[in-house]
Structure formats: structure tokens, C-alpha cells
């Protein structure tokens, strides 16, 4: 009897915790969603901020984030996939793979602000790119690299060994096998990683603080050596250092909602790709 009671109490608590965590998630999304939906309109998405960021829209921040996503993935995606091909197809199972994997995990655990420091020292100052889309993209690219490597590795490992053996038995070289058999089979899951990276890059603030982000720009960036506004930094500015914090609150809710929607949509698309396999 006693055993049964303590079991019931324990299980009730665990279930309550589960509900609580989901409740926290929904209260964050619900709160931002409820306040944000009242602000979001076509004008909000396509206009520049006006009147000290208390009205108008967030168009330049959306454009800036788009550039940063494209810029960072252009170089991180191919490198990440290549790195994953090396570890899964070439490196075997010895100590080399173990070291590579530990290093990838380490890179993933480095705080984003440290990437910001590094990006500033190397790209902005040493290589003299200045505060620019190029410097910001490279910094963000380093940050998502481990995510891309890990998801691509999983995708490649999920391809059955018999596919490779069949191809090799027909006389194909190892590279031909990878290009024609393994990569097409793993394609869906590799794309999943790419999409999740888009969500990650869009939301990162600390790495872009000192490498690209601008408080306010009156026009859109015209090249990779220009500064840009970005959604997460724009939200930070609106929430903490606008000219009139109370008046810019609605703009902040709208920006936060756009950020959450990007992550939400990317997660949905990713799970769609994953299921298709």
C-alpha cells in the first residue's frame, strides 16, 4: 500500500513537471504571439523603422538577417557536409574519428559570445573586413558548422551499408559511390540539418554584435562590406536601448514574433523532410 502511494505521488509530480514545461513553452509563445500579432501587418514587414523606432516596420532587419543566413550557409554548408563525408566514409573507426568528434562537440559547446570575440579579432580587425556582412557571415558560419556536421553525419550513417557495397561491387570507385549513391540517399536528412541551421543563424545575437550589426541604417546594405541590421539585434535594441522604451514595445513584440515564427516554420519544414525518408 505504502509503495503504491509513494509511486502515485512520484508519478504525479513527474507528469506535473511535464505539463509545466509545456506550459512554459506555450506561455512564452502565447504571450509573444498575442502581443505580436496585433502589430504584424504588411507595412510592418516592408517598411523602415520610423520616429525613433516607435512606428514603421522592420524591413531592413529582415533583409539583413536574410543576407546573414545566406552568407553564413554558403560557406558553412559545403564545408560541414564535406567534413561529415570524411568522418563517415573515409576516416574509419579509429582514434582520428574520435578526436574529430570530440573537437566538433567542443566547437558546439563554445558560447556564442566567444565566436563574436573571435570574429571581431580575426575578420573585423586582422583581415580588415570591418563591421560587414562578410565578417558577420563568416562568424555565424563557424558557429553553425558543428550543427551541420552532426546532422549530416547522422544522415550519412543512416544510409544502409549494402548500398555502398552494391555500388562498389559493380566497379564504381569510392567517390562515385559517395556522389551517386550515398549522397542522394542521405539528401533529405542533410537538408533537414540545413533548415535547422537557418533557424539557428536567424536567432543569434552575440556573434553579430561586433562583426556586422548596426543600430539603425537609413538604407539597405549594397554589398558584402556593408554593415547590416538584423532581427535579433534589432529586438535587443528595441527592448533595451530605444529612444522611448514604452513606445517601442509594440515594435519589439512584432520583431520577437517574427523571430519565433522563423524558428517555428523551419522546425516544421525540417520535420516534414525528415518524415519523407
Amino acid at each position: 500500500m505504502n509503495k503504491k502511494v509513494s509511486q502515485n505521488i512520484a508519478f504525479f509530480i513527474f507528469k506535473f513537471f511535464g505539463v509545466l514545461v509545456i506550459g512554459i513553452l506555450f506561455s512564452i509563445i502565447g504571450f509573444i504571439g498575442y502581443n505580436g500579432i496585433q502589430v504584424i501587418s504588411w507595412e510592418f514587414l516592408t517598411e523602415f523603422p520610423k520616429e525613433g523606432m516607435t512606428s514603421g516596420g522592420i524591413f531592413p532587419a529582415i533583409v539583413g538577417t536574410f543576407y546573414l543566413v545566406v552568407g553564413s550557409l554558403i560557406f558553412a554548408f559545403p564545408l560541414g557536409v564535406m567534413s561529415a563525408i570524411y568522418t563517415t566514409e573515409y576516416a574509419g573507426k579509429g582514434w582520428i574519428v574520435r578526436i574529430i568528434r570530440i573537437m566538433t562537440n567542443n566547437l558546439a559547446s563554445i558560447p556564442s559570445i566567444v565566436f563574436g570575440l573571435f570574429g571581431m579579432a580575426l575578420f573585423v580587425n586582422k583581415l580588415n573586413f570591418g563591421d560587414s556582412i562578410l565578417a558577420g557571415s563568416l562568424t555565424l558560419g563557424l558557429l553553425v558548422l558543428p550543427l551541420i556536421i552532426r546532422t549530416s553525419e547522422e544522415a550519412l550513417l543512416a544510409v544502409p551499408q549494402s548500398y555502398r557495397e552494391g555500388s562498389l561491387a559493380l566497379g564504381a570507385t569510392k567517390l562515385q559511390t559517395i556522389r551517386r549513391i550515398v549522397l542522394p540517399a542521405a539528401f533529405g536528412n542533410i537538408i533537414t540539418g540545413l533548415i535547422l541551421s537557418i533557424g539557428r543563424v536567424s536567432g543569434e545575437t552575440a556573434p553579430i554584435l561586433f562583426t556586422v550589426a548596426a543600430y539603425f541604417l537609413p538604407k539597405l546594405p549594397s554589398g558584402i562590406f556593408d554593415q547590416a541590421m538584423a532581427l535579433p539585434y534589432h529586438l535587443y535594441v528595441l527592448a533595451t536601448s530605444g529612444t522611448d522604451l514604452e513606445a517601442s514595445r509594440p515594435m519589439a513584440y512584432g520583431t520577437a514574433l517574427v523571430l519565433i515564427l522563423i524558428v517555428l516554420i523551419m522546425n516544421l519544414i525540417a520535420s516534414f523532410f525528415r518524415k519523407k525518408l
Binding site: 509545456i22 512564452i28 533557424g199 539557428r200 536567432g203 545575437t205 529586438l235 527592448a239 520577437a256 519565433i260
Partner: peptide, 22 residues
Amino acid sequence: MKPLVELLAGIPSVVYGFFGLV
């Protein structure tokens, strides 16, 4: 529940900061 927990991990930290602030 698993995807919801994943979603919690995906929310940008600046959004958490904003939520914490207000």
C-alpha cells in the same frame, strides 16, 4: 512532447531575454 521540447531549444536567446524583461 519531444518536438515541443526541441522547439524550446530553438527559441532565440534574445527572445528569452525579452520575455524575461517584460
